[in-house]
Write a protein that binds this DNA or RNA. Structure first.
Lengths: 350, 350
DNA sequence: TTGAAAGCGCTAACAC
DNA sequence: GTGTTAGCGCTTTCAA
């Protein structure tokens, strides 16, 4: 009915000046005002249903309590939980999330960041970074930024990631323990830290078991999609029919491997074992249930929000990297290799 | 390095007054300025990398080109695609999405709406509404709002939904065609339009086939979750062991029905058929692959964004309701009832 | 402890 | 077609 109340209305009702009302309203300046006045102002604000106009506040303070969250595509099942965690983490502190998707296109990302900057955003959480990306700047000033799930090489930006090395290590160890020797890797693009780290981890883990990795054992696919996984695994299988196990960089890619196997009349896990990464919702239900590496999606979101809020408060602090533990989830897609495939001596050594 | 450029800097560089620069910069007022001046201003803006400060603009115009998107929980697999569609629909028009989750709590929703209002949001897309909800108001003024996936009874708010009646009708028809007669329904809460409409559609569809629905054949679960579905189906099965098919209100609930069946040593589809709703990603992969109703998630998002933008432009227009078509996706979870369960005459009539 | 005054960057009357 | 002026609602010196 009446117009929306401003701080002036509150001040008037409380019988003080608007600047005093402002001081009384904000917790951080509250102690410069007498208790009696604070109470009067707060009462008046409550009575009027006052909510500060954040545009006006932003204009003055150049802050907005809004954070930009940029991801490749929300439909990739890794992201919903991460974003949910971010939202919860931000909300605790009175911040909100502005969400946008890039489909992995750097140009779209650039535009989005610019558009969000113009909207006075206080910081960014990015799940889109490539290894060689620079942190976003605001006319020379670094904008507080945290990366989730991905990381950059130079380490100049804070990042929250899962322990890729441990995860891939666990997958390789499981397969080797099962008796596999000819293990292949379907990797993600080298430009992405997730792809690169997991690839490096694969090579290292294999080496730890005395196994070398030839080029023919690895395929880099162009994206984290089922279809890319299907094609990469197909080419791998065709060039290299002797492989008995595939470590996929990601669950979606692993499901793509299932298709490649099926197309060639191969059975998983009887002919070829497959492992995934992420423990995406519902990967427990396909047939066979996918053995994969669980990452703490939600917690990664929460942590990245906290880290960003800390950076916003203290932009000078050194960048921090948080690596969250992962866990092998053994299901049905990894089993012992077929009889004729494994070195006889070691077979079935449980 | 230099400060971030304001419209004054642009005006100065172009040799005009800031108000002229403002007019030249915005497409809608551009034609009140001479072509020569427009060009000069645009060049200056480009050279300086000028982006209008949206806080200042908001403060003046009371608009923000930001839309609030409020959903129950992003982790429910219906939402990612819808939200993605919304984001794409908004972006076409230069709008952005602010996202928040309520976990279905009306109080959280209320607070969120208030917080977003204070942030000068231009409108809301809500996937959280209960049937008796009122549209959000801004001190007496209705805030432009569109509902997605859900609807309210009074029809005062624009809404984009899937054709629930047709979907449930198709599921019932499939099951009846397969020979089922004792078909049960695991419904969602009556307070939600999705729950209520699908329940009504179930009763109607059964009637169309000459089948009446007793109370014992229906359970309302408290939420769209696997666990709620498991419990509801369990109680249904225990009270009513003769049923041969379950129409679930939703895929998550249907997967819960799988669990209830398994716990009782019953097989799907051999003993009991199950149908879902939504055709959520990956429900094609569990065992058995779920027969369900596909809804156009992404398009629902796009449409709701467009509808909201139209309402923002013309708040006076009558509320519009868009019902998008659905499609039965027959997979493996619905089959003919067991021999001894179906009326002999009609069995296996193809 | 409080008030006065200025100003963030932009847009919209109004005047020329 | 363009400039002048005022002001959106808030915070923040500065003075009292």
């Amino acid at each position: 009915m009446d117009k929306v109340p401003t701080i002036k209305d509150v001040a008037e009702l409380a019988g003080v000046h608007s600047s005093t009302a402002s001081r009384a309203l904000r917790p951080d300046t509250r102690d410069t005002v007498s208790d009696r006045t604070v109470k009067r102002v707060l009462d008046a604000a409550r009575k009027l249903g006052f909510a500060p106009n954040s545009a006006a506040r932003s204009l003055r303070t150049k802050t907005s309590s809004v954070v930009g969250v940029i991801i490749p595509d929300l439909r990739n099942p890794v992201f919903p939980s991460i974003v949910r965690g971010i939202e919860d983490g931000l909300r605790e502190a009175g911040y909100m999330a502005m969400l946008a998707n890039t489909d992995g296109d750097p140009e779209t990302e650039r535009k989005l960041i610019a558009a969000m900057r113009a909207r006075q955003i206080d910081g960014f959480i990015l799940a889109t970074s490539r290894r060689d990306d620079l942190p976003p700047t605001h006319d020379g000033e670094l904008v507080p930024t945290v990366l989730v799930n991905r990381d950059t090489d130079d380490g100049s930006v804070s990042a929250v990631t899962a322990d890729n090395a441990a995860g891939i290590g666990a997958a390789v160890q499981l397969l080797v323990g099962l008796g596999h020797r000819r293990i292949a890797h379907v990797a993600a693009p080298r430009e992405l830290s997730t792809g690169w780290e997991r690839y490096r981890a694969f090579v290292d883990a294999m080496a730890r078991h005395g196994l070398t990795v030839s080029e023919a054992q690895v395929r880099f696919c162009e994206a984290f999609t089922e279809d890319a996984g299907r094609r990469a695994a197909g080419s791998l299988l065709d060039d290299n029919p002797a492989i008995t196990a595939i470590v996929a960089v990601d669950d979606l890619v692993a499901i793509g491997c299932y298709s490649a196997l099926a197309e060639r009349g191969l059975s998983c896990p009887d002919d070829v074992s497959v492992t995934g990464f992420n423990d995406t919702p519902f990967v427990g239900t396909p047939h066979p249930a996918l053995t994969t590496i669980h990452i703490p999606h939600y917690d990664m979101g929460i942590e990245s929000a906290r880290l960003l809020l800390a950076r916003i408060k203290d932009p000078g602090a050194a960048p921090k990297r948080i690596v969250l533990p992962v866990r092998l989830v053994a299901r049905d897609s990894a089993a012992a290799p077929p009889m004729d495939a494994a070195p006889p001596m070691e077979r079935r050594t449980r």
